Simulated assay, not measured.
Amino acid sequence: MHRLDPAEAREHIDRIKRFRILVMGRANAGKTTILQRVCNTTDQPEIYNGKGKKVNATVLQGSLKRGYHSIDDELVFKSNPRFVFHDSCGFEAGSEQQFDMMKEFVMNRAKTVQLDKRIHAIWFCIPLHDSHRMVTAAEKKFFDECDTGHVPVIVLLTKRDTLALDAFMELIDDGLNEDDAMERAAEVEKRKLIECLEKVKGWLNKSRFPPHDYLPLTGMQEEVADCTTLLTYTANALNEEGLQQLLISTQQSNLGLCMEFAIMK
C-alpha cells in the first residue's frame, strides 16, 4: 500500500473542507446542546442521509429525540456548515445489532481512503446526573472492542451542573442552613467532580482502547457558553497539523482558540 509522505498527506488534508465529528453517548446526555454551542446557534441541525440527500427534518424530529435514526446521517448547522456531525444514538439500549452497526461505522469511517468521509474526532458524552450508572455496560464494551485507529476519543463529562444541587443538598443533610450551604456548595461540587472523574478514568483506562482524554463540561445550557476548551482539547488530540488547522479554520471568530495555536499574525 502506498504511504503518503508528509507533504502528500498535507495536500490531501487541504482538500478536505469540513471537519467531521462522531458524537456518542446515551439519550439525554446533552449531545445536541453541545453541538449547538460549538456552532453558536439554538437552531436544530439540517439532516442529510448517507447519500447527501437532505432529509425532511419534521419527519425525523420525533425519531431524533428518541434516538431512532441512522448513524450515517449527517447533522449540519446552517450557522457553521464546516462541521459535520454524526450521532450514534441507539447502541446504549443494549441491542447487539445497534452496537454492531455503530462499531462497523466507527471502524470504516476511521480508516476509509475517502478522506472527505473520514471522521476526525469522537466526542463520547457521559452524563454526571446519575452517579450510580455513569458508565454503562454498553459504554465499557465500546472502549473494549472499538479500535478507532488514529481518531482520538475524548470523553466529555456532561450535565456537570447537576452536581451543584447534589452538593447543596449534601450540606443541608449535614445540618447546615441554606446560607452556609450556598457558601460551601462550590467547594463540595469540586470534590464531587474530582471523584466522578477519577471513577470514570478508573473504569475506562483499564479498557483495551481507552479514551485519549477527559473533559468535564459546564454551563452548556447557557447560550453564550464558551467552547474554547473543548475545541482546544480536540485540536491537541489530533495527530496531524493539517487536521488541527482544519478544525481551527471552522472557528475563525474564536480568538482564544486561534491564539492558542498561533495562526493569527
Rank of each mutant, 00 (worst) to 15 (best):
K51I: 05
K51F: 07
K53T: 06
K54G: 02
Q61Y: 01
Q61P: 00
G62H: 03
S63W: 08
S63T: 01
S63C: 07
L64A: 09
S70Y: 08
S70R: 15
I71E: 09
E74V: 04
S79A: 12
P81G: 03
S88D: 02
E92T: 15
A93N: 11
G94C: 07
G94W: 03
E96N: 08
Q97Y: 11
F99V: 08
K103W: 12
E104K: 13
V106P: 01
M107Y: 07
N108R: 14
N108F: 13
N108A: 13
R109E: 11
L115G: 05
K117F: 06
I119S: 05
H120I: 09
A121E: 08
I122C: 09
I122L: 07
F124C: 04
I126S: 00
I126L: 08
I126M: 08
I126E: 03
P127N: 05
L128C: 08
H129W: 09
H129G: 05
S131R: 15
S131V: 12
H132E: 15
R133I: 14
M134W: 00
A137D: 15
D144I: 02
D147V: 06
T148N: 13
H150S: 12
V153H: 02
L156T: 06
T158K: 12
K159Q: 14
R160L: 05
T162M: 08
T162E: 11
D166W: 06
